[in-house]
Design a protein around this nucleic acid. Structure first.
Lengths: 274, 274
DNA sequence: CCTCTCGTGTATACGCTGTATACATTTGAT
DNA sequence: ATCAAATGTATACAGCGTATACACGAGAGG
């Protein structure tokens, strides 16, 4: 098991050394992981690549678990800064996308277990940034934390899908399409599921929506609803029809309506059409 | 690597046997996994518990990967039926909660890799059910699929958090609170992060929101927004009272209302009663 | 009834993993 | 110069998944 105290010490107070260094060990381990996933990282392989015996590593790292902690924080440090955007939504969106790109660069980050990770300086810095951004929504502190956690979790899970399939493609040399295309013996069984069948026939699988982009927009919409409800956005009750200017009650979600009536909605539609 | 054809064959067409059975192997493996996670499942241990040699298992299962496929589907079959709810949102919510409970019963389901799993009959049945439910939103097929995928992914990732911490607690005998409470050497470094600090001082961590419940509501809100944008507008205005035929604005979910007023609703009710 | 094949279970062994232990060497401070 | 601490090495153990070769019993064909 991991010794969290030792992990903390290593993460937050590294001291330089000569010869075989923590730095070099961590970097070599990362190279291996980037190339072949966490499964490709073994103490023997790291040592070999560095020209030392396996046990030499244990003079610098207490065990493999702690080494992975170090790899994580090292790599989190690479995260490029998000350039400021207009409004929290755009900013969170940019962050999410950057995060996905990051997971693609280091797919193994997703394999490493998530509970009780001692956060390193780089991880904390990223967290601080996210908190700061979401704070601008005006949500109360508990919810700010919850939102950051949620977006983080979402991105991780979406990235997990992407990354796992990419990894499988690389390992097997078989593309996702090919693989599923070759599952005829499976499809043979799927006729007796009516909804599945109908959706398939209706083209529900022809051009699947990108799960990351789709999910992200839903998540952000959801947060936006919360923000509007919670911060008592004045606009809610004041919303006015964009056609006639009449006052309009907002939807239950707090999302302001644009039109006061079907008539006005159609008027706007016809206008657009010419 | 897994042989998907063999997996499909095993999953969809099991034949009974005498002596050492696929059934018994799978069930023993599940017992082991339930007790100690996937790490506790080894071919040797399964065999030992059944009173056979390790290699005897390989007469029934091609390899460990395929065995895990079988474990997955076996266990998915337990899923109790969701009792019908009013409206898709309540139904999806109930499903998500049932799913979480399920992951708690079989924490190892989360450890097993997600890409390119050959779905078994039980998994497909669950998927069919979800598709059917979400279809009632009136969303186009591609989006129905995307929504089901998204909710599934969300629940899995939320469950991952819960389950991983529970597993860590059980393995180490140290509660989550205790563990984080003992990280003083970490907190000593956190003063210089202003937002983090402020949120901490404002009590943002005193009573953290349940990530599952919080996230679920956001996700559902997000989907609801989509449903309204996508389908709600037309139907909303078209719905008519089943009693008097008056036009009725639909509910927030885009679900058409059946009655225009409380009066009409009661009238229908009295009529039914006699 | 004999034989022969096939399904099933066993025994042994290989290469891989993380790491405990004991020993050797180098280095820096006194 | 000496001595202790830091660093690197060698060997070994217990565990893993599984390839291979062999043994045994039941059922089928002659």
């Amino acid at each position: 098991m991991v010794d969290p105290e030792r992990s903390t010490e290593l993460l937050w107070g590294r001291r330089p050394g000569r010869g075989l260094t923590l730095e070099r060990i961590v970097r070599t381990a990362i190279e291996l992981a980037d190339a072949g996933g966490l499964a490709a990282v073994s103490m023997r392989r790291i040592a070999e690549r560095l020209g030392f015996t396996t046990m030499a590593l244990y003079r610098h790292v207490p065990g493999k678990a702690e080494l992975i902690d170090l790899m994580r924080d090292e790599v989190i440090g690479e995260a490029e800064e998000i350039r400021p955007q207009e409004g929290w939504r755009a900013e969170v969106e940019a962050w999410a996308r950057a995060q996905l790109a990051f997971y693609r660069r280091h797919p193994w980050m997703i394999e490493s277990p998530g509970a009780r990770r001692v956060p390193g300086p780089n991880a904390v810095a990223a967290f601080e940034w996210a908190l700061e951004t979401v704070s601008r929504t005006g949500l109360p502190p508990t919810e700010v934390v919850a939102v950051v956690t949620m977006v983080g979790t979402f991105v991780e899970s979406a990235a997990r899908q992407v990354v796992e399939t990419e990894l499988a493609e690389r390992r097997t040399g078989v593309s996702e399409q090919e693989w599923w295309g070759a599952r005829d013996s499976l499809y043979a069984h799927l006729d007796r599921y009516p909804t599945l069948n109908r959706i398939y026939l209706d083209g529900g699988y022809d051009a699947p929506l990108d799960p990351f982009e789709f999910g992200l927009q839903r998540v952000l919409d959801g947060i936006e609803v919360l923000v509007r409800d919670e911060t008592g956005d004045e606009r809610r009750d004041e919303s006015r029809c964009v056609v006639c200017g009449e006052a309009v009650a907002a939807a239950a979600t707090g999302r302001p309506r644009d039109y006061c009536s079907r008539a006005c909605r159609q008027r706007a539609y016809r206008k657009r059409k010419g």
